[in-house]
């Protein structure tokens, strides 16, 4: 069996190399494994990803290599006898402590990144530069509420728009709510993903880098019904001065929100009056 395996492997090398070469452009265009990253938070996540890839990749090559080596080297031979051993404390201690050290390293490495991205205490909610947007998810669409040029919610110039339009180079704080089932707002290029949970208001943030101005897609990443796959949203990143102009434009063009119909006993209806849904 083994010689057959060897010749098969040798025959496979050329075609595999060819496929790999042909596939290279596809990989190059999108980054090796991950899509383009347009935020500092995304870059930190990517660095951690590649650290883990390097560590697990080495372990993968080492263990699988050893497995294949043992399979070939210790195949049964006529008259051969296996070596009798029931274990070795020293070896077992080594291969318990070494992976434990690596796992601890990976655990410690990510503390800071997670805190920077997710901890409420580190969110730029009080940053005067931050742009706040209210997000509403419902089967099967996204709505975005902007405070308008006065930057205060609950006023005349607030407006709702079906697209997430944000400036680059400024923190964007999202107040996320869902009115029916769980949805999840996912932008691969931002390495951003956050579930929207009925009954909760969840705050999350991101900051797109300057130079990343273009259109992006928003995916819904949590199963939300039979048309879940159609819940595609759009995001546009603009340079700051373009964004400010667009904000004024949209505020003037959209009808004011009828906050008089708000119901203050229920969190979500305070910001998204029920009258907005009864139309459907």
């Amino acid at each position: 069996m083994i010689p057959i395996l060897k010749t098969t492997l040798r025959r496979l090398v050329a075609p595999l190399a060819l496929v790999a070469t042909l596939a290279m452009p596809a990989f190059a265009e999108h980054g090796f494994l991950l899509p383009e990253s347009i935020s500092d938070n995304g870059d930190k996540i990517d660095q951690l990803f590649y650290v883990i890839l390097a560590v697990t990749g080495l372990v993968f090559l080492g263990t699988e290599g050893l497995l294949i080596y043992f399979i070939i080297k210790y195949r049964a031979r006529e008259g051969g006898k296996a070596h009798y051993t029931t274990g070795n404390h020293r070896a077992e201690l080594i291969w318990t402590i070494t992976p434990a050290a690596f796992l601890l390293l990976i655990a410690v490495l990510q503390f800071g990144i997670w805190q920077d991205i997710k901890f409420p205490s580190r969110m730029p909610t009080d940053d005067p530069d931050a742009v706040e947007v209210h997000v509403l998810a419902q089967q099967f669409a996204w709505k975005f509420r902007y405070a308008g040029p006065d930057r205060v919610f609950g006023t005349e110039d607030d407006y709702t728009y079906g697209k997430l339009v944000v400036p680059s180079g400024r923190p964007v704080v999202l107040q996320m709510r869902s009115v029916d089932v769980i949805h999840s707002l996912f932008v691969p290029e931002l390495r951003f993903k956050q579930d929207l949970v009925p009954g909760l208001t969840i705050t999350a943030w991101f900051q797109a880098r300057e130079g990343s101005e273009r259109d992006y897609e928003i995916a819904c990443a949590e199963l939300c019904g039979a048309s879940h796959y159609t819940m595609r949203g759009e995001m546009e990143i603009l340079a700051n001065e373009d964004w400010e102009a667009r904000d004024r434009e949209l505020s003037a063009a959209n009808a004011p929100i009828d906050y008089a119909l708000s119901d203050s006993s229920t969190e979500i209806f305070r910001f998204w009056p029920p009258s907005e849904f009864s139309a459907n």
Binding site: M1, T63, L66, L67, F70, I71, Y74, R75, A76, R77, G80, K81, A82, H83, T85, G87, N88, A91, E92, W95, T96, P99, A100, L103, L104, I106, A107, Q110, W114
Partner: peptide, 29 residues
Amino acid sequence: MVATMFIALPSAVKVFNWLGTLWRGQIHF
């Protein structure tokens, strides 16, 4: 996260012990 990192450890130990079981064996395919 920390608990999850450490649950990988016993699994890793098992993999090494399986490799140790194959080491210097007479493997019948």
